[in-house]
Design a protein around this nucleic acid. Structure first.
Lengths: 360, 360
DNA sequence: GGACTGTACTGAAGCGCTTCAGTAGAGTCC
DNA sequence: GGACTCTACTGAAGCGCTTCAGTACAGTCC
């Protein structure tokens, strides 16, 4: 007898209590115009009295094949969503766009392989997924495709009908590189984002630099290299440090190593502001001053770049715009819209005090 | 005929193809030891060939009543999770703790009422929920209780068996206030976090200051007031500005108004670093310098506080520890553990250059 | 060689909901 | 007053999976 008390009420409980069919109770919640206002009120009252909270989300999802959530696939741990400024700003804009759509945001953590495990994708309850800067080879991408979930990809090549927003990464680093060569720099060091999805951290031999599955890394590297070869610098001679993650600690380590090379670089080309900010510290560690002894350029133009000491010369990318666009594309797909042509965003070189002509 | 081709394969499809029962296919995925290794391999092969991705997450959730997700209830929009430094740092630590548990993180956006709408809570697919600094009266809390989901609350009173982690907010602001009175300050202005859940922004009359449903605001205000009354200052005479959200823009506006009051405060007591950072700018706006003309203290000790100009005197709270603890409590509840006694974290006054004795 | 024990697998009953094709009955129309 | 249309509601078939109580059968034991 008492078991009815302890079990959570369901549609059925309410239907029985009111003396109508289950379908009618369902309609009371989902299609108010399918029943008389009076009955509806009565149903809702009884439901309330019984402590029934409305249709169970999971059961509803099963029946409707919708889950009212947007999934976001991260390249690494959940934590990166809250600690990497470039990602945070983008997610912020994405969230703000998707907000008010009554969809929750599901964050899918990635691991070393670059992106979430396929089974956590298979398991995720979402109607649309946004992938951000995963390696082209990420198993997670295949999993999404197999589930036939609509997807928008950011900063990576589109695969099989995904909507895409991307950046002129190449143009950005090329501009930064050219700016430095024009200042007269000839000895460079590169602090790179991950080149290969094996979590390595350290100097990257030339073999490792080609065919990176990370579009962003690939493009940014090509842009820098392009600018250097344009003035006759041989790419193989340029030392590259590959940072396992984009944070200051890795940038610092990288800079310390690069500034020990011979010839010592007079300019450090970084692939993110966080790395560049770390490089600033690294230079200080080895007793060099920026920009007198060494110039440092970053990428992203996140807020810390502007207030760094010295303020960072960097390539500005429209992070907010990127997030907003990704959000809008996700909403379009959610409504059954077809993915439009890839959207490409422009970048802009922002010159500040961390760069100067080399001392002859 | 062809419809079989276009429909997504299910457990049944695979079972039929292999010629075994559905239960056996289910076992192949969930309880490998319940069938022979050979059969299992065969099933997995066929599944793979058919493009079957493994049990559908929603159906599985319905059958098991588990969803492999942790929900986080935000007081305001999704976006605050990525833009408020104090929140970001805590979430980062929480995420890092929960990570590797194969649970996704579901972010539930709040609205003006303070926290998510009850129906979005009712709809959320999660096994445990973490509530952060919601008003005591938040409908979302009731909804969680009705769903009988385990909950851990952070920075708010526990209700009905929730696990809790909280801060010595009172002690923190009391210490900050006392420090300033000891320096000789007697004229104060307070920049407060939201007092009442109606989204108001502006000067807060004394009626509005009592009985705030926000524990954090309540405690921090009491701490400040306590320190002031201790030296004979009447609380009603202290101007308080209530900021609708904790960001710099609001802090700036608040400071401009407070510094126009008569007598002009010689110290601004802020309830967050973001507000204090804005107050720094606000003081500058009206031609006052910090700390010569006016002292400013914050709360949180987020990274920007340390690098502000001038660096901010503030109350440090262990944000990382807070997030980590919340994560661990969530994991405990997830495993069916009972909530332990509330955990209370200590704070510490960090004196930097934004505060000084008033000029006589 | 009969009783017992595993092992490997199956059938069927849910999990809680949505939705579609109806049906009953009241109202409208000429 | 018969044909038609609405409105308000119901019955039942899923959605795709897990799980529990079996069953069948081979192996072990004395």
């Amino acid at each position: 007898m008492d078991t009815e008390q302890t079990r959570r009420p369901t549609l059925d409980t309410v239907a029985r209590a009111v003396g109508v069919s289950r379908a009618t109770v369902s309609n009371a919640y989902n299609r108010p115009n399918q029943l008389s206002a009076g009955l509806r009120t009565r149903i809702l009252e009884v439901a309330d009295r019984l402590g029934y909270l409305g249709p169970d989300p999971v059961a509803r999802s099963l029946a409707t094949r919708k889950s009212a959530a947007v999934a976001f696939m991260l390249r690494s741990g959940l934590s990166s969503a809250f600690s990497d400024p470039a990602l945070t700003i983008m997610l912020d804009a994405l969230a703000a766009t998707v907000d008010g759509r009554d969809h929750a945001l599901v964050l899918l953590a990635g691991n070393e392989s670059g992106g979430p495990r396929p089974d956590s994708v298979a398991r995720a309850q979402a109607d649309v997924v946004v992938a951000y800067s995963l390696p082209d080879t990420a198993p997670a991408l295949t999993a999404v495709r197999q589930r036939r979930l609509p997807m928008v990809v950011v900063d990576q090549p589109a695969t099989g009908g995904a909507a895409r927003v991307e950046l002129d990464d190449f143009g950005g680093t090329q501009a930064a590189g050219r700016y430095l060569t024009e200042l007269g720099h000839r000895d460079f060091g590169v602090i790179s984002l991950t080149l290969q999805p094996d979590g390595r951290n350290g100097p990257a031999a030339p073999e490792r630099r080609t065919g990176s599955p990370f579009r962003v890394t690939r493009e940014r590297l090509s842009g820098y290299i392009d600018a250097l070869t344009a003035v006759g610098i041989a790419p193989e001679g340029v030392p590259v440090w590959e940072a396992a993650t984009s944070d200051r600690e890795h940038g610092r380590t990288a800079a310390r190593w690069l500034l020990q090379q011979n010839p010592r670089p007079t300019a450090l080309l970084c692939m993110s502001d966080e790395l560049a900010l770390g490089a600033l510290q690294g230079a200080r560690d080895v007793g060099l001053s920026v920009p007198q002894d060494v110039s440092v350029v970053g990428f992203d133009d996140t807020p810390p770049a502007g207030v760094a000491d010295p303020p960072l010369t960097t390539v500005r990318q429209p992070l907010v715009e990127k997030g907003r666009l990704a959000g809008e594309l996700a909403l379009t797909l959610l409504d059954g819209g077809r993915p439009s042509r890839p959207v490409r965003l422009d970048v802009e070189l922002v010159v500040r005090a961390s760069s100067a002509a080399p001392i002859r």
